[in-house]
């Protein structure tokens, strides 16, 4: 009986118990943490979208479009040229809009302002809008990731 309470046995038991406890916690925590991390779905990432005929877009206009899961903003300028930006404000993720009356791209959430080239000019946005590449081929507009 005296052996069962000897310090070395006690230490071994304590070590085994704490190692087992830690392993048990890890065996529970790891799957839970991994479970909470959403899986990457195929088809979520898009590298290019077709946006239809050039004629559908009037000069000096802007159109929101869907680029995978994110919104984009297709600008057609007075001279007929196109540029496309991510429509996600670089400040806090709201969706921006073209304001014809102000001649800017504007974010309603925190009054962020960008010029028509997507550069942040006023308010809280820290960076210009991300830009896409616009390709016009056979009278059709295509937008791809830059």
């Amino acid at each position: 009986m005296s052996d069962s309470t000897s310090p070395s046995k006690r230490r071994t038991l304590q070590m085994l118990l704490s190692a087992g406890g830690t392993a048990l916690l890890a065996a529970i925590a790891y799957p839970v943490i991994a479970y909470l991390k959403p899986p990457k779905l195929s088809g979520q990432s898009v590298s290019s979208v077709g946006l239809g005929a050039v004629d559908e877009y009037a000069p000096a206009s802007a159109t929101l479009f869907r680029f995978g899961e994110k919104p984009g903003l297709l600008m057609r300028y007075q001279d007929g040229s196109f540029r496309a930006f991510s429509a996600t404000c670089t400040h806090l993720d709201c969706t921006v809009q073209y304001r014809e009356d102000m001649g800017i791209i504007w974010c309603a959430c925190h009054n962020g302002k960008y010029d028509l080239e997507g550069r942040n000019i006023e308010g809280p946005p820290p960076k210009p809008l991300d830009e896409f590449t616009v390709i016009v081929k056979d009278g059709e507009v295509h937008v791809t990731e830059s």
């Binding site: 919104p71 806090l92 921006v96 309603a108 809280p124």
Partner: peptide, 29 residues
Amino acid sequence: DPFAAAPAGITPEWYFLFMFQVLKLLPSH
């Protein structure tokens, strides 16, 4: 509509308004 622009006059609930206002007034850097 996840693909529409944020509407003008958008605000949070009143109890987050002070944080919203401070974030609006902070410069970009």
